[in-house]
Amino acid sequence: MAYTTSQPQPGGFLSRLGFGGKARSRKTAVAAEEMKRVQFTSPVLPYLFLFPQLAVIFIFFYWPSVQAVSSSFYLEDPFGFGSTFVGLSNYTDVIFSSEYQSIALFTAVFTVLVTFLSLSLGLLLAVKADRVIRGASTYKTLLIAIYAIAAPVSGLIGMMIFDQHVGPFVKMMSYFGWHMQVGLNYYDTAFAMTVVAVWKQIPYNFIFFLSGLQNVPVSVREAAMIDCRSGMRRFWTVILPLLAPTAFFLLTINVTYALFDTFGIIDVMVKDKPANNPVTLVYKVYADGFRGNDIGGSSAQSVILMIVVFVLTIFQFRFIERRVHYN
């Protein structure tokens, strides 16, 4: 499937978040209107087709969001007996807590690192795999297979590799004088988490970059080859700009991955007890809400996260997408 996707549509991802209408460019909107006129005879029919998707979005996104917003203004007994309206104090408690601030900082650094490393390594591997002729599909399958590993499983693998007592990576590093203590030393744990999170995401980026590369027309490549001998330069000036739509789509996906989908890895790697180890904002929401039963505080945190994602998405589409040319 991945090989035949010509241009991944960011609209698809966005509409899942509920931003579909705004993100669509005018051109596609006009085209869609024409198509509508052609295909649907009854005005109700398109809404009928939309209904299942809208129902899913409503039940699993809007409704819980509204619940989260409303309970973020209360301090509530988890069983639902007593609740006190506290205004914005759940928000101020969270924002001014030094722990929350340090978690937010880690989340930002982690997101940038994971996104940058998994994108660049995925691109590097794709470029190299694109040139391979003999045994190409074997290489590709081996690289892609990792993507089939579930997040908690990759967390478990990471836990074994970085185990304090038996981890092979830890033993190897001790020859170089680095005595890693994942679980005790903040930076060692952060290192291990980043490595596992990047490793898990590379195949995804690889697939998309590879399909992007294979869509670069042979004629363009040949023309570039006549103009310029340096492969490096050809890549930067011709191939990379043509990959920009793919890269932009992957940027959005990778940022969301680092922010949210790494939860499974982190949960497994901190072994239920974060202590002084780094965790991301979404883990904190889980820890306070589901383990600590602090519904108000946890709701406030998830509303903050929603706002962050909202702002980030607008930023990406306003300022970065402008520089991307879709053909």
């Binding site: 722990e99 005790l184 007890k273 202590a275 002084n276 180890n277 383990r291 600590g292 602090d294």
Partner: peptide, 18 residues
Amino acid sequence: FYPQIRSIMEREYNKIFS
């Protein structure tokens, strides 16, 4: 909220020993 209080203790105890 004792589970959270325990988490705070765990965090600070780790910091003591590191």
